[in-house]
Design a protein around this nucleic acid. Structure first.
Lengths: 124, 124
DNA sequence: TTTCTATTTAGTTAGTTAGCTAAATGTCAA
DNA sequence: TTGACATTTAGCTAACTAACTAAATAGAAA
């Protein structure tokens, strides 16, 4: 029951729904891309990603310093829920418009993106 | 998106999951039965029931002073989610054991139940 | 080996929420 | 009409949580 509760709790946050929406529309995204697109700090994005990983919605892989996240299709009992969510995301004009922001985030290389983020962070 | 978020938030509480489990196993229950079975105050049960009603999971009908709650099958987009939840509830030994407590709560009349609740409240 | 870098973890804070008691509201019975 | 009663709403409080900054961790480059 705690597992069930935590599954729904994980989904009960707008930014975590957005993360899943982004990973349902792109095969894989880097932590820095997700944090950029979400518009929150890297630390906050990391926390959200961890919650979604612990519940089993997403998985990650490392490539050197880079961490990539994607949907986890291994957790069988969640797939119906994920399919339902995907349908809701697909039919939401608001979320579809939100996802357009991913174009810009994924248009440059990760190195370039991080360079811009570090620059922006030093200004504030 | 706020609607989606609120739907999951509504489910992100153990007692609200339990309420839905009880209404998935019994056609209809009275507010006082739910509050008795949940083991929380009437005020708290009422708040939880209101959240579930606002999101569309359940509906209510009044019979004099008595208020009865049941699953709401009118909200089409929630039905897949409810079916998934029902499956999770059915396969959870913990929740099935929890639901056994409904036998005792529904064994006596509503009037008898309320008489006992008022007696218990006056002792504390 | 040292420095740089991407990410995660720790700690803090303001906002949110589940629990309770008391009061309010609506319905019934005398 | 008044009093009893079932339920809901209001108000309070302790616990929880999303946001941030700073520190820690891990990996790469010089």
């Amino acid at each position: 029951m705690v597992e069930l509760e935590n599954t729904f709790k994980a989904l009960g946050d707008g930014n975590r729904i957005r993360i899943l929406a982004s990973l349902l529309s792109r095969k894989e995204l880097c932590a820095c891309q997700i944090h950029e697109w979400l518009g929150v700090s890297g630390a906050t994005a990391s926390k959200h990603l961890n919650i979604l990983m612990r519940v089993g919605f997403i998985k990650s892989r490392k490539n050197g310093r880079w961490v990539f996240y994607s949907m986890n299709s291994d957790h069988r009992s969640l797939q119906t829920l994920v399919r339902w969510l995907k349908k809701e995301v697909t039919t939401s004009l608001e979320l579809q418009k939100d996802l357009q922001g991913l174009e810009k985030v994924t248009a440059c290389s990760l190195i370039e993106l991080r360079r811009k983020q570090r620059l922006k962070a030093s200004v504030s």
